[in-house]
Amino acid sequence: MAESPSTSRAPEPVGAYPYTRRVGNLLFLSGVGPRQRGQNGIPGVEVDEDGNVLQYDFESQCHAVFQNVRYILEEAGAKWDDLVDVTVFLTNMKDDFPVYNRLYAEYFASAQPCRTTLEINCLPTPIAIELKCIAALPN
């Protein structure tokens, strides 16, 4: 039977889906972005009145995404080191990958999950990074 633990620290999902789904000892995380709970803005993002991105601080978004993943894991009874697979979606591989790769190496210095990084056209909100993760929970 699958469970969908809730979270009170990560941002609210932007659609009708749970942030996590536990099946056996695996915890699946839906796409996690840098938004912060209870706030409309996105860390490091400046938009005009029409919602067009004027500028963004990609490093701020990375830190926020990693923190949100940590929140979700902790509230589901998992730890950062329980991550076994991370899929990363970037909207600007050319400019943002070096920053992302450097920060990823810092955050995952001890835990070494499998990783796939993809460039995509856009995400549902004006964010530049989103993570999809799988963790293995202790029995």
Rank of each mutant, 00 (worst) to 15 (best):
F58Y: 00
P43W: 00
G24R: 07
Y56I: 04
G38D: 13
V23S: 10
L27P: 00
T20S: 12
N40P: 12
S60T: 14
P34H: 02
S60W: 11
G41S: 14
F28T: 05
G31T: 12
L54S: 08
L27M: 11
F58Q: 01
E59P: 10
V23H: 09
Q39G: 04
L26F: 14
S30I: 07
D50K: 15
R35Y: 14
P43Q: 10
N25I: 07
Y56F: 15
N52Q: 12
I42P: 06
N52H: 15
G44A: 03
L27W: 08
G31K: 00
G41E: 11
F58I: 04
S30G: 09
G31D: 07
V53S: 06
V23D: 15
D48P: 08
V53T: 13
G38N: 10
Y56H: 13
E46H: 11
R35V: 08
L54Y: 06
P34A: 02
V45R: 03
F58K: 01
D50Y: 12
T20K: 06
G44I: 02
G24M: 03
V47P: 03
V45S: 00
L29D: 04
G31M: 12
R35C: 12
N40S: 12
R21S: 10
E46R: 15
G38H: 08
L29C: 11
E46N: 10
F58S: 00
Q55K: 14
N52D: 15
G24K: 12
R35D: 08
V47G: 04
E46A: 15
D48V: 08
R21P: 04
E59G: 12
E59W: 12
F28S: 03
G33R: 10
G33H: 01
Q36D: 13
F58L: 03
L54T: 09
V47R: 05
N52M: 14
G41T: 09
R21K: 13
G38T: 08
Q36A: 06
L29N: 01
G24W: 05
E49V: 15
